[in-house]
Structure formats: structure tokens, C-alpha cells
């Protein structure tokens, strides 16, 4: 079983800033972390290898320093990492990102399963996983909260929905995206750290994966961020109630009534 885990480097929650000219997220000079959902994707892949054998490869597209998320992946059990990095990829939206990742997955070859996080916390789009599946024409399961069984070329996944869940059987190769409920990521070991530091991590450029120039980067991305604003400020000073329980509740109910909320 060969599993590719797509991991993304994202700005830490507190540090979101936007370039006023390009309207893109500024990725220079701010603290970056591995996308939290991708740690569950990594753990899921490592657990599959522990169960049925095979190989776990982590893959990221980003600037050269994104290599650190690959090392983090190796620290918690991935066998190797591949960095897709080329100026030509810069400014890719989800269409172009999923195209490039799909091309890299084809180049890796013999991949049975791709695991992504549910969404990245910077863009919050949740489009790259299904996008990769579409570019590869593979089946997909999103919001996966459990992997039941992998046998006879199929995987059984439990998908989370707003109103419950369903269980579906996917023909491999396939793409899944996972939510936090799926597992408890392990803590890195010293041995893992050493392994990660020692590994050579190959860097692939656009031409290495045979990406068509008109399908990658800013020019190939149909969506354009034309404006960014802080969200509408939360108006008022909040109302602070610190009387007796009866007073507080009566006042709250009055406020809700006044706004026709109840």
C-alpha cells in the first residue's frame, strides 16, 4: 500500500496578513505551522502502514522553506517527503494547486491512496482534496472520520455529514480527506527527529512533473482575490451582566426580545 499525504504549511492563526498589492496571503517573515488537519492525515497514513504494510510519502507544494512540514511528517512516521517548489507555481489557486499535486502523484507512481486534511486553515476552502481526485479521475471520500477496512482493492470510509454519517466503499486508488475525529496524532520520537534531519528531500520543479505551463501558477488560476477587508467590526461594547442570577437572566431575555431574536 503506497499512501501519499498532502501537507500544507500555513500561517499560524494569529498571524494572518494580506499583501495590499497582490491581495495574496503574505507568507514571508511570519510564523508558519503544519496545517492542523494534515497531522491527522499523516497519522491515518502511518496507522495504515502499521496495519497492512507499505509506504507513506508526504508531499507539499510551497516555497523552499515548506520543507519543514515534510520533515515534521517524517518525524511522526512518514518514510519520505517530496517538495514541489518552483516560482512558476506561485499564486496558484485551488484549481492549479490540485492540478500540480495530481501531476506529482502521477509521477510518484503506483499510489493507492491519497490523504488530505479536511481543509487548510488559511484558505478554508476544502477544495484541494476533491480537486486532486477529479484531476486523477479517482473516487473520493471527504470529511472521513474513520477508516474501517482496506481489503481487495477497496477502502471502507465513514464520512461525516451535518446530520450524521455514511459508510462508503471506495475502489482504490482513491483520495480521502480527514477530520480530527479520525485519530489521535502521535508525539514525535527522538528517533523520528533524527531520521527526519538526515533525509535528503527531493525538490521537484514544474518541468519535473510535466506540468503544462498554462495550467499552473497565478496566470492559470481562474479566481482572483480583488479585495480584502477586516470583517465588519463587532459593533457595540458588550453588555456585562453581573447582578443576581434572576436579574441577569431577565435582562438577557429582555435584550433578546428587543432584537426580536426570541
Amino acid at each position: 500500500m503506497r499512501t501519499v499525504v498532502c501537507v500544507k504549511q500555513v500561517p499560524g492563526t494569529h498571524d494572518a496578513k494580506i499583501d495590499p498589492d497582490t491581495k495574496r496571503i503574505i507568507r514571508e517573515g511570519i510564523k508558519v505551522v503544519i496545517n492542523p488537519f494534515d497531522t491527522y492525515a499523516l497519522e491515518a497514513a502511518v496507522q495504515i502502514r502499521e496495519r497492512i504494510g507499505g509506504e507513506v510519502i508526504c508531499l507539499t507544494m510551497g516555497p523552499p522553506r515548506a520543507v519543514t512540514v515534510l520533515r515534521e511528517g517524517i518525524t511522526v512516521g512518514a518514510d519520505r517527503g517530496i517538495l514541489l517548489s518552483d516560482r512558476a507555481f506561485g499564486g496558484s489557486d485551488t484549481w492549479a494547486t490540485s492540478y500540480a499535486l495530481a501531476k506529482a502523484i502521477r509521477k510518484i507512481g503506483d499510489v493507492d491512496l491519497v490523504i488530505c486534511g479536511k481543509q487548510a486553515i488559511d484558505g478554508d476552502t476544502a477544495q484541494v482534496g476533491p480537486g486532486i481526485a477529479a484531476h486523477l479521475s479517482w473516487p473520493q471520500a471527504t470529511y472521513v472520520m474513520d477508516i474501517d477496512e482496506i481489503a481487495n482493492g477497496s477502502l471502507i470510509a465513514k464520512r461525516l455529514h451535518e446530520d450524521g454519517w455514511d459508510l462508503c466503499s471506495l475502489r482504490l486508488p482513491a483520495v480521502i480527506t480527514v477530520v480530527k475525529d479520525i485519530n489521535q496524532p502521535r508525539v514525535p520520537t527522538l528517533k523520528g527527529r533524527l531520521a527526519a534531519e538526515q533525509q535528503e528531500i527531493p525538490v521537484w520543479k514544474a518541468e519535473d512533473i510535466g506540468a503544462a505551463p498554462e495550467r499552473i501558477g497565478l496566470d492559470a488560476s481562474p479566481t482572483r482575490v480583488v479585495q480584502t477587508n477586516p470583517p465588519a467590526a463587532r459593533k457595540n461594547e458588550g453588555l456585562r451582566l453581573d447582578g443576581t442570577v434572576e436579574q441577569n437572566v431577565a435582562r438577557l431575555v429582555q435584550e433578546l426580545r428587543r432584537r426580536s431574536l426570541v
Binding site: T13, G123, T223, R224, V225, V226, Q227, P230, P231
Partner: peptide, 17 residues
């Protein structure tokens, strides 16, 4: 749309497609 969990509102346009 909100991005970064609502810390930023972004306006997106798709002029050429």
C-alpha cells in the same frame, strides 16, 4: 467570503473564466 476563520473577508472575482 471569510478566510482565516473569519479574521479576513476576501472578495474574489473570476473575470476570465
Amino acid at each position: 467570503r471569510p478566510a482565516f476563520g473569519g479574521n479576513i473577508m476576501a472578495t474574489i472575482r473570476c473575470s476570465d473564466h
